[in-house]
Amino acid sequence: MIPRPFEYHAPQSLPEAINLLTEYGDEAKLLAGGHSLLPMMKLRFAQPGHLIDLGKIPGLKGITEVGNEIRIGSMTTENELIWSEVLQRKCPLLVEGARLISDPQVRYMGTIGGDIAHGDPGNDHPALMLALDASFVLQGPSGERVVAAADFFLGTYYTALVPNEILTEIRIPTPDARTGQCYSKLKRKVGDFATAASAVLLRMDGTSVDYVSIALTNLGPVAFKASEAESFLLGKELNEQTIQQACQLTMSACDPVADLRGDIKYKIAMAGVMTDRALRTAHSRATR
């Protein structure tokens, strides 16, 4: 199908983009990578009268470490995440997750900010952001505010962004060097969304779990943390029994919908399998 007619805007600055969003209101949509918006426009599920391209705005790309925090511009592509030396050394979970997103063509154009702002529970970055305890810089006419990932994802395709705000930056506390990290994802084929996926950060104190973070993809109306499983594991030895119990607690927190990727029971079972794999792999990568 062909999209409805629209006016294309290519602002050269962030204030210009915010002014356009404010001026055109509900008639405007932001274009980042475009891999979600453009297909929806072709099917006329989305029919904006004005398309605002963020691609020519300086300062929205890049990956830097500032103090004990990693900062990523929202227009940074998946491929740039994969090749970042900072992320490879300090935050390999994000590199691993980006490698599992779609295919190379999409990764060269798709952006981390677009993935997050879309609010799709099937996208990979929401769970990765929750696992990493990230926060997002949102900028609008009233200035800048910072929202924790835990407070950002409110529902399916529904986030804390207000209509005339733009997600400009992602901030991630630099993980402790001893932390093991893993993103375990089940998908039917290359390029597909996850049937189920689990992101884990794990730090050990001897044989006991000193810190653990578990977040899940496509297993509820939003990406979410497996909080009960995290609380259960904290301070315990990581063994067959505790891993099994943590996976059961993770499965009990899931609320997926049936689709072509599987029925509800299958998806919940795979949540347990992916969490099991992620915990074991993160444990093998943790430096005691």
Rank of each mutant, 00 (worst) to 15 (best):
Y157R: 15
A127M: 00
L14H: 10
I112D: 06
T281G: 05
I18L: 09
K236I: 05
G62I: 08
L81Q: 02
A282N: 07
P175S: 07
C91K: 01
A226D: 05
G49A: 11
A148H: 08
R288E: 15
Q47K: 14
S213Y: 00
A278I: 10
F136P: 00
S252C: 06
D53A: 12
L60I: 06
T179S: 10
L128S: 04
E65V: 14
L260K: 04
L216V: 02
A149R: 06
H9E: 07
T111P: 11
P3S: 12
G59R: 06
R171E: 09
E230M: 13
I57Q: 07
L154Q: 13
V209G: 06
A131W: 08
Q88D: 11
L216F: 06
A98K: 05
R4A: 15
P141K: 12
F136E: 07
P5R: 13
R44F: 15
L31E: 00
M251D: 04
S74H: 03
I172H: 03
Q248F: 10
M40H: 08
G143Y: 13
D151G: 15
S252W: 00
K56F: 12
G59E: 10
I18H: 07
A98V: 11
Y266V: 05
S198N: 03
F153A: 09
A253L: 10
A223I: 11
L186K: 00
G67A: 11
P256E: 01
G49R: 07
Q105C: 14
L38D: 02
T159H: 00
E169Q: 15
E169C: 12
S252T: 04
R99Q: 15
I70T: 05
G180F: 06
D176T: 12
M40R: 08
I101K: 04
L21K: 03
E69A: 09
D124R: 00
D133C: 07
Y211S: 12
R89Y: 12
I116R: 06
E78N: 14
